[in-house]
Amino acid sequence: MTSFASSKTSGPSFGRIFITSAVVIAVVALVLLLALNDPRSPETLLSIFATRFLGILIEALPFLVLGTLVSGLIEAFIRQEDVLRLLPKNRYLATIGGAFMGLIFPVCECGVVPVARRLFTKGLPVSVGVAFLLAAPFMNPIVFASTYIAFGFGPIFIMRFVVTAVVAISVGLLFALNRQPETLLQPSSWQKEVLHTGPRRGLREGLQYTLAIASNEFFEMGRYLYVGCLLAATMQTFVPQEALLAIGNGPVLSVLVMQLLAFILSICSTVDSFFVLAFVNTFTTGSVVSFLSFGPMVDIKSTMMFTGVFRRRTVLYLVLLPFVMNLFAGVLINALGITF
């Protein structure tokens, strides 16, 4: 992981531009290939694509805007002492606490990223932020309520809670072993210098500052969200979820399929319980729990947004570790034969 420290760049390098354009060209070529082989006309495909893209985006937009405003408010009004005072001194305890920070900042996966990024610049340790990032989209009053309405306070609710907490805290603790944020975060998400603390801003000045920060943050985080929506809409236009579901039987495969579905669909965590209700009869309990615990942590949208905060290798860990842990949890639930 230390090799990353040497490769940090402040501006776009030639290699980075090359890789980005290669990826863009590959994606465009793949989409063209899929479109040419599709029996539906290009106009129809474009119309379906537009509806899917706008749908995912319009649903996420309020959370993005609220997330950027909270981020602006944090930047304007929260100082180092505040973070220091509220944070347990022990970094491992703090990481465990981070998993439950969503109870204070009720955010879903689109809003949590700008908030976490801003807290990193305020000195929040990466491990705490990671636990917050992974857990908060479920660990907040709004999603508790929607899960309760869909499933009641039963095994699904409890297992979703336990699996989310265990995975988020475990991944957070793994990151706590690394004490160099510069090897994990993008340069813009943390500051090298230790800065003196100034007085708290006045309300008027602070709010003006909030607007200035938030209007830039909207684009900074928005571009990742928009590209994520673009990818999710493309996948949904061409890859039928029914095809995915058709292969999904068995205690292991069903979990894999539901996790893949959660990743592709990028359904907001506030409503994913209602969506998955349709699958409770046909899918294993473990796969439903994995869908509900993995989906809020990682999906196409949030992965794209992670790349704006973390270095690429960190993003890889942030996707793979929760994937493997949730897979394990889901298979374990199936193996133990827990039903509801």
Binding site: A50, E75, I213, F219, E220, G222, R223, V227
Partner: peptide
């Protein structure tokens, strides 16, 4: 605006016009 605010890039601006075009 503090220096840790990375610059508003043209790419980000263009990407965010997408819903207006579609």
């Amino acid at each position: 605006i503090p220096a840790n605010q990375s610059r508003l890039t043209t790419t980000a601006l263009v990407i965010c016009t997408l819903p207006l075009i579609l």
